[in-house]
Simulated assay, not measured.
Amino acid sequence: MRKFNQLVLNEWLKISKKRSFIIPYALLVLMVFVIGYIVHTVAAADTYASAAEFTADSLLPTGIGQVLVILVIVGIAGIVSKEYSQGTIKFLLIRARSRTAILASKYVTVLLYSLSMLMAATIALFVSGMIFFGLSGGDAGINEILTSLLYSTVYCIVYATIGFMLGILTKSTGVTIGATIFATTIDKIIIYRDFYKYFLFPNLNLAAYKDGGAPMPGMTLNFSIVLLCIYMVLFLFAGFAVFRRRDVA
């Protein structure tokens, strides 16, 4: 376990030492404060009664969550593909570590990066909401914020896993970013046919089940959770299977 933790630490240091590492965080925080300012001054000062309401609503996948996914993908898209393009994959694989352990450490790093962005977004949203809307008022509280954070976490991690898999399969950072951004632009489209509920997209936004709703007739929260778990297993299986068998000579 200690050796695996060291692999994860090494991977985190790789991405954190890049000059561009701080850029997604900075863009995210800037965007949050711009949104807070615009809502407060242009829309209406009473749009949100408190920082908690602003945070809980904005954090959903239909809000800042969608932008957050794009920033996460841009940040981690090259974690595997750049090892191939820069030729460092050969040096990585000659170490006394299995390919599975190496790739698993990269995936854990992807998850940690995603969670760090989610936490940055949550803190920035609350501070922005505190400045523009205050702390008192409204019915929203910590439970609503945590619920929205959970919805956004599921949405973000699924997309991070898709980007991780695409980076392995295509060995291209550009394709990974482009394909994932395209997916985020069409994932809100609903095809009202019974077969479509088995696709990934209508199951991504679990917030649709709030207040007894559903993305499509006949869908339930448990149904979407099971479908997402199945897709995640398939994505990871495809990525690990290709990485373990690919010839890098």
Rank of each mutant, 00 (worst) to 15 (best):
N10D: 05
P24Q: 14
A179P: 01
S81V: 12
T180S: 12
A51C: 06
Y37K: 10
V67M: 12
G163F: 06
F21Q: 08
A238I: 10
I177S: 01
W12Y: 07
A49K: 11
L93H: 00
E11M: 04
Y25D: 07
G78V: 09
I225K: 09
I131E: 00
A56M: 01
I76T: 15
L150V: 08
P202E: 12
K3N: 07
L9Y: 09
R97H: 14
V34N: 10
A52I: 00
I157A: 07
M219S: 11
F164K: 14
G174N: 14
L93C: 03
L27F: 15
A120Y: 03
D46R: 05
L60W: 00
A52S: 10
T153Q: 04
E11S: 13
K82Y: 09
F237Q: 05
I73Y: 05
P24G: 13
I102R: 09
R2V: 10
A241H: 14
L93Q: 07
F4T: 10
E83Y: 08
L149Q: 02
M165N: 05
V72T: 14
L59W: 07
L7A: 06
D211S: 06
K14D: 03
I225F: 13
G36K: 12
D247G: 10
S128E: 02
T122N: 05
F223G: 13
L103F: 07
L60P: 00
Q6H: 12
F126Q: 03
V127G: 00
I102K: 06
F199L: 15
L7C: 03
A101V: 02
L103P: 04
I23T: 15
L234E: 02
F182T: 12
G212S: 11
I168Y: 02
N10T: 07
P61L: 03
F91Y: 12
A45Y: 07
I70L: 05
V127A: 15
L228T: 08
S20T: 15
S98C: 02
Y231P: 05
V34L: 15
A56P: 01
A140T: 09
T47P: 01
F199Q: 12
L227R: 15
L234R: 00
F240S: 07
I76P: 10
G167M: 12
V248D: 10
F195R: 03
S224T: 09
G137M: 10
V69D: 02
L115S: 12
L68A: 11
T47C: 08
P24E: 14
L234T: 08
T180D: 06
K188Q: 14
L206Q: 09
G138V: 12
I73R: 05
I181N: 03
N10P: 00
Y113M: 03
T173D: 04
A207R: 06
L59C: 08
K17M: 06
S172D: 07
S105H: 02
T62D: 02
S116M: 07
N205G: 05
V127H: 02
L118C: 04
K14M: 05
V175D: 01
S81H: 12
I70V: 14
G78D: 11
F126G: 01
A101Q: 11
K90H: 01
V72Y: 03
V72R: 05
F21P: 06
F91R: 04
